[in-house]
Design a protein around this nucleic acid. Structure first.
Length: 481
RNA sequence: GGCGCCAUCGUCUAGCGGCCCAGGACGUCGCCCUCUCAAGGCGAAGAUCGCGGGUUCGAAUCCCGCUGGCGCUACCA
């Protein structure tokens, strides 16, 4: 069957390495629309091939977040399908076979170079103003030498052998032909020394096996598309169509990142954004909808969204506009429904239940509970310097400490023990007393110097929102000087 | 640095050779409404269409160059 006639099958392939990302939602939305418009299937595949960054809770959060947005998939690890398994860690045998095939055909080779040697090589290349590329040392190895190393249990990776010289030309459906001289295409690692495939291999093998017709992904992948095209060719497979979507940006135009913008879908949900508003807002970015439409539903997008209209400049993710749009939706809600929203989010029972023990021993009247826990319901608290500034520390030191605090918490697992360890470690690092660090955190989180237990409060408030509060504090205070 | 992608108000965008000395939305400012604040209504400021060359009777729209931004340059995706 020619690719043109093949049924449309598209996929979103997030990796479970942390909180689900707003960029994932954006690409998921686009894939969803594409499938719905063309009578195709929308597949969710979990790309869990990075063992070092794997986060166990991440997969479930991905499901929850995408479902929350209303982006239902037709096939996936949790719903099944005829092309499973849909988790890459369960498909390793497939990749191993694929690698064997390439090895036998001479289109890939084993590389025994150590990370140290590769690092040294790159430094030399940088010093000589050469582009950093693998120097093919291991390609010189004789079959006997390879066998010897294999017998000696030397760890190795498998690399793609990019034909040199050569050129790869592919078509991007939005941009037309894009060409890469192979002089600029590295011998990409396909199989890591831990036996897991890299994205490049896994994505090609799976997209083929799952009969993906159109790869709709972010623009950052354009540079590595030649490697993928080469792989399809090496296997003798037909490549899918490629649609590279513009990258969401921070206000400073750089690729959207958690340091400069809230990117966690968990955050947006907990902070009280409505899924309809988020979907609507994402649909506004890139301009796929008719220009005179400002407010629309997922169904309306399915009806009217045009991929050909998408503007290729990377849109800034403008939180201000999202907030405005969310307000539009909130105001349009029947009061009864708004009540419902409140009851399941800011005033959700499970949330309230967690808060009760934090305030119980500190109240004389019920109304005081609200006073004590107000910060757990607020969108923003803004402590003045009198509150957050430790007596013996300068503003500069304190802001620096705040930035360190944010970094430490970002890396922390959200448990009491680890939070405490993290804060004490930070105190050591800064040469501050633990009390000073805890008080700074308390001030930023609660806006006050007296509060319910700090760590318990942070735990209840949630990682995404706590980090956002820190980030906004730092931004606000930096802007003040 | 190399390679690639991109380029209209601060931001999201409309525009696809004449209707554009560029339209809408967010944001900003002002006025109205109003017990306050929002919301809402009205209005204003805000883009020599990044710059320079072409093509054309005519260019934001087509072509080339430059500049700028961004991405990639990992045993991360």
């Amino acid at each position: 069957m020619s690719p043109d006639a093949a049924p449309v099958r598209v996929r979103i392939a997030p990796s479970p390495t942390g909180d689900p990302h707003v960029g994932t939602a954006y690409i998921a939305l686009l894939n969803y629309l594409f499938a719905r418009q063309r009578g195709g299937r929308f597949i969710l595949r979990i790309e869990d091939t990075d063992r070092t960054r794997f986060v166990g809770t991440s997969e479930q959060m991905i499901y929850d977040s995408l479902r929350w947005l209303g982006l239902a998939w037709d096939e996936g690890p949790d719903v099944g399908g005829a092309y499973g398994p849909y988790r890459q860690s369960e498909r390793t045998e497939l990749y191993r076979q694929a690698v064997d095939q390439l090895l036998h055909a001479g289109q890939a080779y084993r590389c025994f170079c150590t990370p140290e040697r590769l690092e040294a090589m790159r430094q030399q290349q940088a010093a000589a103003h050469q582009p950093p590329r693998y120097d093919r040392t291991c390609l010189q190895l004789t079959p006997a030498e390879v066998q010897a190393r294999l017998a000696g249990q030397h760890p190795y990776v498998v690399r793609l052998m990019v034909p040199q010289p050569g050129e790869t030309v592919f078509r991007d459906e939005l941009r037309g032909e894009i060409r890469f001289d192979h002089a600029n295409v590295d011998d990409q690692v396909l199989l890591k020394s831990d036996g897991y495939p890299t994205y490049h291999l896994a994505n090609v093998v799976d997209d083929h096996a799952m009969e993906i017709s159109d790869v709709i992904r972010a623009e950052e992948w354009i540079s590595s598309t030649p490697k993928h095209v080469l792989l399809y060719g090496a296997f003798g497979w037909t490549a899918p169509r490629f649609w590279h979507m513009p990258l969401l940006r921070n206000p400073d135009k750089s690729k959207i990142s958690k340091r400069k913008n809230p990117v966690s879908l968990v955050y947006y949900r907990q902070a009280g954004f409505l899924p309809q508003a988020m979907i609507n807002f994402l649909g506004l970015l890139g301009g796929g909808m008719p220009a005179d439409l400002e407010k629309f539903t997922l169904d309306e997008m399915t009806e009217k969204f045009q991929f050909e209209r998408i503007s290729l400049g990377g849109p800034v993710f403008d939180l201000e506009k999202l907030r405005w749009l969310n307000g539009v939706y909130l105001r349009a809600l029947p009061p009864e429904e708004l009540l419902n929203e409140l009851r399941t989010t800011v005033f959700g029972q499970p949330y309230l239940r967690q808060i009760v023990p934090l305030v119980q021993e500190r109240i004389e009247t019920l109304a005081q509970a609200a006073d004590l826990a107000d910060f757990l319901f607020r969108d923003e608290v803004a402590p003045p310097p009198e509150v957050y500034l430790p007596k013996k520390r300068t503003r500069e030191e304190t802001l620096k400490a705040g930035a360190e605090l944010l970094a430490a918490l970002e890396a922390a697992e959200w448990s009491h023990a680890e939070l405490e360890a993290e804060l004490r470690r930070l105190a050591d690092k800064l040469g501050w007393t633990a009390k000073e660090v805890f008080m700074l955190f308390r001030a930023i989180l609660t806006g006050k110097t007296a509060s319910p237990p700090l760590l318990e409060s942070a735990l209840v408030f949630g990682k995404a929102r706590t980090l956002d509060r820190l980030r906004r504090f730092l931004e606000r205070e930096k802007a003040r000087r």
